[in-house]
Amino acid sequence: MDPLVPEVATIRKITPETASADVKTFEVQPDESEVFSYEPGQYAMLSVFGVGECPVSITSTYEPGAPLEFSIKEVGRVTGALHEAQVGHKIGVRGPYGNHFPVKQWQGRRLLFIGGGIGLAPLRSLINYCVRSRENFGELQLVYGARSPKDLCFKEELFDNWPEVSGMQVHLTVDAAGDDWDGEVALVPDFLEELSFSPDDTIAVTCGPPIMIRFTIEALKRMGFADHKIVTTLEIKMQCGVGNCGRCNIGDKYVCVDGPVFTYQELSSLPQEY
């Protein structure tokens, strides 16, 4: 089987995440085989046949027999076509690809998750992993922001599930709010600094729009986080996902196989071409 030929899969469920439904979560089950096993932070290539393929991070956490979940924002041609798809429709899936969050190395550490908008998607896989093996990790903190309350993703987990987890705290913020919001109104990096977490024995993991990541990293550094304890994921145009098509290199690293997870230490030794 050629690595570039996807497997046919069926969309089992579609959940709009935001009020405008510009983010939807798709539950996907391969037709012919079991769901492959994967780690938090990995991604898959999704195809809409006749339109094309794009890399999407896996939002679910691996559990034998459970379907794959992808939370997708409509930004381009393929994601646009995915948003038009209905339950029961066929798409193509291949993966899992890329490296993952080094969860084994992080055992016993405290984790600080910082997400912005749809950037919570790859973090969700990680957070649920940590929640499931709660005893293996120290304190969990989530700082998450969106443009408005309507744009917050994974509301059930944000408001109901995660706050109930022992030793986990959820801090929400929005850039702009209406009357329906009595929480924090601030940009994520500012809110983060205001909350001021201790860098001791803590790994900070941040995902979100590039501009947010940039300022978040600056804030983390001011808070005393060392470069190798700041972890992020990169997004870049990909075609093959397997290190063959040559597209996604940043210096001598390929985001598709060497990433998408990088520490800030690794990133700072690479050219700023992302």
Partner: peptide, 30 residues
């Protein structure tokens, strides 16, 4: 290389074709 689909009605082909890092749209993202 790049991958691209071509569709006629309800059937189609996925192609693989050369690409060049010198093209402006090589790394242009959505």
């Amino acid at each position: 290389f790049a991958l691209f689909d071509d569709l006629r009605g309800n059937s189609g082909v996925r192609f693989r074709g050369w690409d060049s890092c010198q093209f402006e749209d090589y790394l242009l993202m959505a």
